[in-house]
């Protein structure tokens, strides 16, 4: 069985986000970009499934401009067997990505499609669900545990829901999106980084896949959340009561 994993390049999670002065988006120039952490978890899970003998190949897929190749290299250095780069502009919304992924699934015919539950840049949390809908495959979102049964061709996943853990059984092929607690992604080791240099990256254009970019969404403005006012330390209970009465007006 082949596993396909979608990975996205985003502003590194440890970077302090700055909004562009013209409010058209967030600043990405001179900013450290890394693989979306949820995608990293998805890839790690795919690699573990392969290492346990339940899959034969892991294919990493990314959709975006040339710089996304770096993120694919990271994926290959972690252990993906090969990669697919779909050349596209940076700003694409989930439905288009889902269409692209569906087109790639039609070409590659994987038994499992793994995605991060969301990308930490836009937090949209839609792509996995949409591609499952387009493919008419069963979906297991926010997986915190994945167990495959090769014979029965089912995947059993745990998902964290309010008040407990829900367990789902999905018939393969299926779409699974991954949550934080699923695993801890590995480091890219030197030998694997070197090996990754010679692993193939296949390129597709949007025309190749017959997908058109059109979006029903338009970003009007991006602004910073209001700054939290810092607290003050009061010197006495009386002062506190005074503030609660006269400033906060809660008593």
């Amino acid at each position: 069985m082949k596993i396909m994993v979608a990975i996205k390049r985003v502003v590194d999670y440890a970077v302090k986000i700055r909004v562009k002065p013209d409010k058209s988006g967030v600043e990405t120039k001179n900013v450290k970009m890394s693989m979306n952490p949820f995608c990293e978890i998805a890839l790690e899970e795919a690699l573990r499934i392969k290492e346990s003998g339940l899959a034969s190949e892991v294919v990493a897929v990314s959709v975006g401009p040339t710089q996304f190749l770096e993120t694919l290299r990271t994926g290959l250095a972690m252990g993906a067997d090969r990669a697919i780069h779909v050349e596209a502009p940076e700003k694409i919304y989930p439905l288009t990505i889902a269409k692209i992924l569906k087109a790639l699934v039609d070409v590659e015919k994987p038994g499992l499609l793994l995605l991060g539950k969301q990308a930490i840049d836009n937090d949209q949390n839609q792509t996995g669900q949409m591609v499952a809908g387009l493919l008419k495959w069963p979906q297991g979102t926010f997986a915190s545990k994945v167990v495959l049964d090769k014979e029965k061709q089912v995947a059993t996943i745990d998902r964290e829901v309010d008040g407990g853990i829900e367990t789902l059984c999905l018939d393969l092929p299926a779409v699974i999106t991954t949550d934080l607690r699923l695993n801890q992604p590995r480091y890219a080791t030197l030998p694997n980084i070197m090996k990754a240099k010679s692993k193939p990256i296949k390129k597709f254009t949007l025309q190749d896949l017959n997908v058109e970019i059109k979006s029903d969404l338009e970003v009007v403005e991006v602004t910073e959340p209001p700054k939290r006012k810092s607290g003050v330390i009061l010197s006495s209970v009386d002062e506190l009561i005074d503030k609660l009465k006269n400033e906060a007006r809660v008593i």
Partner: peptide, 25 residues
């Protein structure tokens, strides 16, 4: 960095290694 690491590996100066892929690592 890659050239340096490759060279050091070939010359057996390094027996293993990881390169951080993001700030957290």
């Amino acid at each position: 960095l890659d050239a340096f690491l490759l060279n050091s590996m070939e010359n057996d100066l390094i027996s293993d290694g990881v390169v951080a892929q993001d700030i957290t690592q």
